[in-house]
């Protein structure tokens, strides 16, 4: 199915990442710059896989405290309630707003985990030079890049509540360590997907 595809590398060409100007590929890409915009030319993103791995691992590490630690602490005169992400989801579900519970669940649980899995699949398949379903993997990359920042929903909610709910004696909301970790998770997954070069998917030779 991909017989018709010829890559620029095969044709001895290189494109500028900034302005998209296509040029003859020089002997050494290192040090050369775009003839039109002057941006440094890179054949592929430097250390793409390494960086992606690093950010992904960091994100996965932080995801554990993000879920186990308190996301938000609600304090009223009689009680202080600590909520983690999952306890919040359960609370919303029990409290009779399953739509909200679903949104929070999708944004805070499904999206990050989906991103981890997708990036893992991409990284492993590129490193092993797998030629399977390159189009599908490229689409997967596009999706995770698009939806990645929506995971910040939770962090926004907590940040807003902390800022707005300040009735000193009667109630207040504090952000817990979980919120910081979760924010870190979202940022790191975004950085991981940014440092991944989707062109690597196509670099492996076609199976004959």
């Amino acid at each position: 199915m991909s017989t018709a595809i010829r890559t620029a590398t095969e044709m001895g060409l290189i494109g500028c990442r900034r302005c998209g100007h296509v040029m003859q590929r020089p002997e050494t890409v290192e040090g050369s710059s775009c003839a039109r915009c002057g941006a440094p030319l890179r054949w592929r993103k430097p250390q793409s896989l390494e960086r992606c791995w690093a950010f992904l691992i960091a994100a996965m590490i932080l995801y554990i405290p993000a879920n186990t630690l308190t996301m938000m602490r609600t304090i009223n005169p009689f009680n202080a309630t600590d909520d983690t992400i999952m306890s919040g989801v359960i609370y919303l579900w029990v409290a009779g707003t399953p739509e909200l519970a679903a949104i929070v669940f999708v944004a805070s649980v499904m999206v990050p985990i989906g991103k981890f899995i997708a990036l893992l699949i991409l990284l492993i398949s590129v490193q092993r030079g797998s030629p399977h379903d390159r189009v599908g993997r490229t689409r997967m990359y596009r999706i995770i890049e698009k939806i990645g920042h929506w995971s910040m929903l939770d962090v926004f909610v907590v940040a807003l509540l902390v800022a707005l709910v300040r009735f000193d004696l009667f109630g207040r909301v504090e952000a817990g360590g979980g919120a910081i970790c979760f924010g870190g998770v979202v940022v790191l997954t975004m950085m991981a997907s940014l440092s991944f070069d989707p062109r690597l998917i196509w670099d492996t030779p076609e199976k004959t």
Binding site: Q47, E50, A54, F55, A58, T68, L69, G177, C181, G184
Partner: peptide, 26 residues
Amino acid sequence: SRWQFSLVWLVPLVAAVVGLGLLIRT
């Protein structure tokens, strides 16, 4: 070397330290 230590690996290291620190504190 492809797997030469690069600064980017400080990120997961810091994440690990922070995460572990938080977990250990908890």
